[in-house]
Simulated scan of single mutants.
Amino acid sequence: MTYATCSVSQIEKADAEEMTAHYARTLFPAIVEPLHRRGAISVEDRHYTIGSCSVWRGKCHSGMSVMLPGGPEAYGLYLPTAGKMLVDAAGRQLESEPGRGLVADMSSFRRLTFFEQRSHMGIAFEKAAMIRQLSTLLDAPVRSDLEFAGPVDLTSGRGMQIAALGNLIWQDLTAAGQQKSSASFSECLLQAMMIALLETVPHNYTPQLQGPASPAIPRQLKRAMEYMHVNAGADIKIVDIARETGTSVRSLQVAFQQFKNTTPLSYLREIRLQGARKALTESNRSRVVADIARDWGFSHMGRFAALYYQSFGEMPSETVRQAR
Rank of each mutant, 00 (worst) to 15 (best):
M1G: 09
T5L: 11
E12D: 08
K13D: 08
D15R: 11
E18F: 06
L27S: 12
P29F: 08
V32A: 09
V32E: 12
H36P: 00
A40P: 06
S42H: 06
Y48V: 02
G51T: 02
S52Y: 10
C53Q: 10
S54P: 01
S62L: 04
G71N: 05
E73K: 10
P80Y: 13
A82G: 05
D88N: 10
L94V: 06
E95A: 12
E97G: 09
G99T: 08
S107C: 14
S108Q: 15
R111M: 01
R118W: 12
K127W: 05
A129C: 03
A129D: 07
Q133N: 13
L137V: 02
R143V: 00
S144L: 12
D145M: 12
E147C: 14
F148A: 10
L154S: 10
R158D: 06
R158H: 10
A164F: 00
L173N: 12
A175P: 09
A175E: 15
A176M: 13
Q178S: 09
Q178H: 15
A192V: 07
I195Q: 14
L198V: 03
Q210G: 01
A213F: 02
I217A: 02
I217L: 03
P218V: 00
E226H: 04
E226T: 00
I236P: 10
I238Q: 12
D240K: 03
A242Y: 06
T247S: 08
L252D: 05
I271K: 14
R277C: 06
L280M: 08
S286Q: 14
V288Q: 13
V289G: 04
D295T: 04
F298W: 09
M301A: 01
Y309V: 03
Q310W: 05
M315E: 06
P316A: 01
V320M: 06
